[in-house]
Write a protein that binds this DNA or RNA. Sequence first.
DNA 1: TATTAGCACTCTATCACAGTGAGTGCTAAC
DNA 2: GTTAGCACTCACTGTGATAGAGTGCTAATA
Lengths: 342, 342
Amino acid sequence: MELDDRKVKILQAIIRNYLETGEPVGSRTISKYTDLKLSSATIRNEMADLEELGYIIQPHTSAGRIPSDKGYRLYVDTMMEAKVQQVQQMNELLIQKADKLEIILKQVAKLLATNTNYATMVTGPQYKNTKIKFIQLSQVDNEQLLAVIVVDGNLLKNKIIKTKEPLDSETLLKLNILLNSSLQGLCIQEINLDIIQKMKLQAGVYSNIVSDVLDAVAEAIQEEDDLEVYTSGATNILKYPELSDKERATELIYTLEEKQQLANILSDSQELDEHNKIQVYIGSESPVKNMQDCSVVTATYELEKGVHSTIGIIGPKRMDYEKVVNTLQGLMVQLDEIFKKT
Amino acid sequence: MELDDRKVKILQAIIRNYLETGEPVGSRTISKYTDLKLSSATIRNEMADLEELGYIIQPHTSAGRIPSDKGYRLYVDTMMEAKVQQVQQMNELLIQKADKLEIILKQVAKLLATNTNYATMVTGPQYKNTKIKFIQLSQVDNEQLLAVIVVDGNLLKNKIIKTKEPLDSETLLKLNILLNSSLQGLCIQEINLDIIQKMKLQAGVYSNIVSDVLDAVAEAIQEEDDLEVYTSGATNILKYPELSDKERATELIYTLEEKQQLANILSDSQELDEHNKIQVYIGSESPVKNMQDCSVVTATYELEKGVHSTIGIIGPKRMDYEKVVNTLQGLMVQLDEIFKKT
DNA sequence: TATTAGCACTCTATCACAGTGAGTGCTAAC
DNA sequence: GTTAGCACTCACTGTGATAGAGTGCTAATA
């Protein structure tokens, strides 16, 4: 059996209606709702077919139909319309531009949550293939050296290094020159044993300090690996009856609070995403087990050159995909305005 | 009417029982539960008195009694027993010691939440009256200066300062010496106009850079003012029927997520706390409006010299005050072990 | 005088049960 | 191929009826 034009129209009507009401949709509703001029009996026949094909489900014998994951998937892939959807109050972010990226991202998460009425998650800024721009060692007090590492995108990392005795300023200067001349412009993968050996050789008696600094560099950039995740609007989950029974809600909110599992889905979508492509996970398509009753829409943005962030929206399977996708699309433009303009 | 010894015992029995079960407590239960050898009828008379005095409440005519806020207050003030209560798995924190304080505090929040089954909140480390230890300006690239400010407790602050043209290394050195000699050992309140004027005078043509650095210093220390708050175990709220109806739970979890209001109660208790004193807010005693149905227990710790953090535990009014207070007391010892030992 | 047994009363919580209505599938007619 | 009609299903709702926990009051008791 094939999906003819009429079946598609009916399926679409069922899904649209279900997205709005959250109630199973009956044949009579569709008969009135569409412009197909068909009686409810005919619709019933078609619905039986659609059920057999797996696009819709009957919760119980005497109820209407609701879309299945397969139905939603078809809807998302082929039936949605693109229309510009702006995130409200984005302009209020502008004032904050000067501040750190993370703060902006947290605010974006919050705005998205209030705009969409779903839960949102945002990764901290991801610095990919960043290069070391500048390293500076300074003597803080008699036993402590401070290493500051600046990488592309003006990301700063600090590390305190303990020493037995203070270094004189000349040595410090030499070490700084050595560090910068050897490491400037390299990204972490490029720092190989060869370079390290050469540096140690040049450092002479201070080779152990060079080791410490390199450890600090590694550690500093390492930190970026465990994906930081911010969430917002967790309580929006409770607005949807199908997710808000105590057990499910507890699991979901816990998942949002713990963030560990969210990192899975976010990094998964980061790998899949071609740039600025939007990813939709419907129900069991999601890699997060506790989210089988939800849908997740993700998008990865390039904020500045080499700096990315992935944003995800979490809602019930009957989320308003059209609005969410269009909002994320619009967000891209809005973020561009904020970052490219200034 | 006075609270004689017997009334106190009965009240205590009622509260203990209610804390355990969460159900209104009847006279027959108390008659068996206590060693007073009194019939339920006598207990009933006493209970009528206790109700008149405002220590207990009858939810409806044919139900048992539950403690009122006043009853809880008496219990907390006079009836609790101190016994050592350790936070489990604290030792696993030790490995992390090397890392930043915030990470430890977040983990403490999480451990406390799993140990107590209540929601927890923790302020970021509070640096009080910290003194500037070290300042370093460095040239990152042609148009950017990096200012690193180290204050007591090895708290680091960075600030990028834009300049029109690069400074030569000699000027940089001079500026660094000027900054350190003028500011080292001062806390922010001590940096007055007089000092600023002198510095600018000495800096000559570079006085505008001195201004920028001072702004950065102010800003860096300013950041500490808006109390950072971490929460954990928000979903524990849902374990208590009296808090888990949809409306209340939404409000509470939202409050925990937003954190803004939590800062109120935390900073309130910081002001009240004599050192290492534990504070209990019962129901309407809490300054946070959404938490009138909860009780909050807070404690402020000195982690390192001059570095504080306030920890709060949020649960239903029938929370196990004894356990919570003793846990927070025990936590103090455990934190001391972690910080003072190493 | 304080305590207790006894009793009538109150109120909630629970369960069974019937009724309602939305929706279906099938059959026969159009 | 479409539709009207009808019997059937099943969740949901409201209604008592009942049980049970607990109370307050009174009168008897130590």
